[in-house]
Design a protein around this nucleic acid. Sequence first.
RNA 1: GCGGGUAUAGCUCAAUGGUAGAGCCCUGGCCUUCCAAGCCAGAAACGCGGGUUCGAUUCCCGCUACCCGCUCCA
Length: 489
Amino acid sequence: MPEKNELMEKVVSLCKRRGFIFPSSEIYGGIGGFWDYGPFGVELKRNVREAWWQDMVQGHDDTTIPPGMPSAYAMVGLETSIVMHPRVWKASGHYDLFHDMLVDCRRCKARFRADQLETSQCPEKPSKRPGEHTNCDLTEPREFNLMFKTYIGALVDPESEAYLRPETAQGMFTNFKNVLATARVKLPFGIAQIGKSFRNEITPRNFTYRSREFEQMEIEFFCRPEESRRWYEYWRDRRLRWYVSLGLASERVRLREHAAEELSHYSCGTADIEYAFPFLPEGEFGELEGVAHRGGFDLRSHMEGKLVRRGEDLVVETGPDGKPRHPGSGKDLSYFDEETKERLIPHVVEPSAGVDRSVLAFICEAYSEDAIPDESGVLQPRVVLKLHPRLAPVKVAVFPLIRKEGMPEAALGLYRELKKRWNVDYDDKGSIGRRYRRQDELGTPYCITVDGQTMEDGTVTVRNRDTTVQDRMPLREIAQFLHERLTAA
RNA sequence: GCGGGUAUAGCUCAAUGGUAGAGCCCUGGCCUUCCAAGCCAGAAACGCGGGUUCGAUUCCCGCUACCCGCUCCA
């Protein structure tokens, strides 16, 4: 395997060369923090999304109690709008958290919150406030907003300002009552959503890792407060197993529980699922997914208004007039338990995963180099993406060994049959070795070759991507063979 | 946001103040009975904008993107 620092360059190069990921707007010089998925990247990304949806939502059995857990649970999907009412972000706390008026000092490079200049001190002369020291050279207060601003309606007017969502989660909270009323779900249950989110990252960097437009796979799991700790641990462990089941199985993946002082003010437990990306220094990990215990924070925020911590409690933040600074909806988002006749605010466990980060981790983990002997027995280098078959963009490639003696016709017949069920490549160009290598770089798990013997006895060779070993089997068994190897892990 | 570096074909790299060359890849053809083989032909590049100059890919300035370090953010 290549050295760590050059591994990332090779991965980026492969992504470009083989059509996985391109810089956005490249012919205009590129645009930082935005990336496009090419013909093979889009298949890989779709496979990641679909594996998640299948495993978390569609394939979820809401009649079976998970081992050791208090009850079974339901999972339903949702797809909410990217632009939401601006008050959503004020009540949720994003507006305050992501939005500041800042003043920079051109001389000492320090940055201050404009509303805290009176209580800040100049780094060069701590006895003075910023701007009071003779050396100070402050900018005008400038608006820093990690949320993308847009305007609703054709008229550009401050009154019509809105934001592109910085997370998909809020759409699931604002629809909590709608889901309860329509999906016949009882606590505990989860709502799942996949969609784009946007953040004006200060420093987009590290390929697609920190993008300004990115895609999330989020679950908001609602449960009784007294069970929430157990469900948090359930999701934390289950989500880690999901990555492992799709091939992120090395010591480069880990679960990290946040220390108490690291927790958000409303959380009583958070764990990150992390991957040791090649662009990070040795021993450092980057977040793939955060699993957060959020208590009743979100539903309460959208009922009462933006919350702040006071001692052990969360209380509504009030403005100078004593009213909520950022009012909630005023709607009752509590849950009535028909059996216990009890009304309660459910607690929330939130597994929030990055699709693009997952795709990048799967590619990095799958990238490998080895050497296999050529026809003279001399070892020749090989680059192969050892992607899990569920994730591989192309599931199988079909080749005629040579372009004559009926082999192309037989191979095309097989290609057309398999194409109905899977993404299949047909290739009759160049040498057979070259065709195998091209598929290796795409991560295609199996290559099927029609040769002279096929014409005689109806068998073909099936070549394994990881071992390069070929097995011969009858044509008529191919579909069943692939079905067994490619379907659900 | 700050400092440093880089920018030539899809990739990896050359050369040059007088309009760019290679290897790999790619396309078409020939050949070819299993791991990047061979032969022929072909497509394909100076990031963007300005300046200096008779002439700029080359020198200068600005911008953009990417990389490294710091900062910031989560």
